[in-house]
């Protein structure tokens, strides 16, 4: 596969991911888009109404905003590093 068709393929991959994320937002009108884990919690309560969690997290984000800040930081750190590594590899391969 030559370079330009590979570039096209990469853009198609990115496009595919975007479409998969946007389609539910547009077409699933009744969706609340809460986390699937919260639904699992409700399901546990349904199966065993008396179940009480016996341990809770010692540290809990102060609000939804703080939580999203932490998630954004996590993604930024990871993406930054992936970008750094790929960039380094690219530069290295061009200097050969």
């Amino acid at each position: 596969m030559n370079q330009s068709s590979k570039t096209v393929q990469n853009w198609l991959l990115i496009g595919g991911v975007l479409v998969l994320a946007v389609v539910p937002l547009v077409f699933v009108k009744e969706g609340k888009f809460s986390g699937s884990d919260n639904k699992a919690k409700d399901a546990i309560t349904e199966v065993q109404p008396n179940y009480k969690p016996w341990f809770s997290s010692p540290i809990v984000p102060a609000s939804g905003e703080i939580e999203s800040l932490l998630f954004a930081s996590q993604a930024a750190l990871g993406a930054g590093f992936v970008g750094y590594a790929i960039g380094l590899y690219k530069g290295r391969s061009e200097h050969k």
């Binding site: 969706g31 990871g78 590093f81």
Partner: peptide, 25 residues
């Protein structure tokens, strides 16, 4: 490369993406 594989997991598991069932994961 190893660190990058870890970082990839780090990014992806931070991204809560809407799904067709109307919830996110």
């Amino acid at each position: 490369l190893l660190a990058m594989s870890g970082a990839f997991t780090f990014v992806l598991s931070a991204l809560k993406i809407p799904s067709v069932t109307g919830s996110c994961s």
